[in-house]
Amino acid sequence: MPVIAIVVALLVSAVVLLVAGYDPLEAYPIMWKGAFSDQRTFSEVLLKATPLILLGAGLSLTFRCGIVNLGAEGQFYAGSVVATLIGINFANLPSYLLIPLVLLGGALSGALWAMLAGYLKVRFNASEVVTTIMLNYVAIIFTGYLVTGPMQESKVGFPQTAQIGEAAWLPRFLPPTRLHIGFLIALLVALLIYILLFKTSTGYGIRAVGINAEAARYAGINVRRNILLAMAISGGAAGLGGAIEVTGLTYRLFQMISPGYGFDAIAVSLLVNNNPIATVLSGILFGALRSGSEMMQMNLKVPSVLVSAIQGIVILSVVAFSVYRDKILKWFTER
């Protein structure tokens, strides 16, 4: 089913490209090459997949708990801000202390940011759809303020912070590529969330609340606590994603540090029916899509808005297919 969604999306995108005056038969091979031609391009794909996997796996947990958490973007920002703060101010610490500290700080701030929305939901019954989106704006805009104000690098005048201490940089394990251990952490987190969700009693409670909160309450499960817990873990994963982006790749914080990972991650999770471990595959797919379309942009001078449009079409198609899964299946089997 996900494969069909992608194929349909690429077909629709082909029409868009044609209308805009580009030849899809020329563009798509370039896109493919941009992602899978050699070790370097593929490592870039994995780098782009890293935050998508972390955020997607986290989101899958909240979706399984029946929470429409659209706040991964803001939680990612929260994590990147705190990671940068720690990375700059504790630069003297040795790596084996600083790296765990930075990652933990990022995860914790993401978790708290998410729990704010969770708290508003369980305490005041405020729709998480609204609160998480609003908190995204707060996080993004506050980050913008920080990098142009209090945290701005003093000399240069760009809207960015100083570099974090070198001791906080995540080790790269496949030189000359930029691939760093953040990718491995993402794989591990996806696996851990999968185990939590499907192998532990805690995960059972979260799933029961997600499918039938009324039955869960009847059975003595504390619905509110499970919602807070799911938000905390999900936000923690997203915050970790933000910390890893800073410590593994950018080494500093700047405005718009996320090109929308938090929103792509929704599709990453939905594409694989909210299965945390499978977000590894869908995360890599979306990473490849981003890398490939950037290549298309460079080589064919396809404008960046068109590239964004193609990514949007893929996400729309994936969501449409996951929402109408049953109807589409029925349509196919009846014919």
């Binding site: 499918i211 039938n212 009324e214 039955a215 009847y218």
Partner: peptide, 9 residues
């Protein structure tokens, strides 16, 4: 359905 069971379980 509403309370006694979790249907997809």
């Amino acid at each position: 359905h509403k309370m006694g069971v979790v249907l997809p379980f």
